[in-house]
Amino acid sequence: MIENMTEIAISQLLSETQKMKYEDYRFVTASCVSLGDDGCDVIYHFDKDLEMKHLKLRVGKGEELPSVSKIYFCALLVENEMKELFGINITDIAVDYGGHMLLSDEELESPMAKQQITIVEKKGAK
């Protein structure tokens, strides 16, 4: 139902994002949907002259997802948010809060994930 949405694999994420940057698209944000045991759907939203393009991929539980913050620095906040609220193991974020950007040090759960994953499992530092 969403126009201009392309489904990609995790291995294509960095090259497709780099392509967006090359085509002068602005990074808007990323959205995450928890699917329980199946992991999460992650949708990256881009914009150019008020026309949007979206990249959609599925991340399995425990699977690593590379950060796009080296390509679009502004992705760092939403990636930290997804990491701690959904428990996605996003690697190499430009500024990694280790799972505690929003959550306190005592909080170990990923509150938006339907399947609870602890901070220890997603390799977050205290």
Binding site: S31, F73, L76, L77
Partner: peptide
């Protein structure tokens, strides 16, 4: 709804 996600403008302006 399965999901309602909101990206607000301040969130976009903090990197700047």
């Amino acid at each position: 709804l399965d999901r309602l996600r909101i990206r607000t403008p301040t969130f976009a302006n903090i990197p700047a």
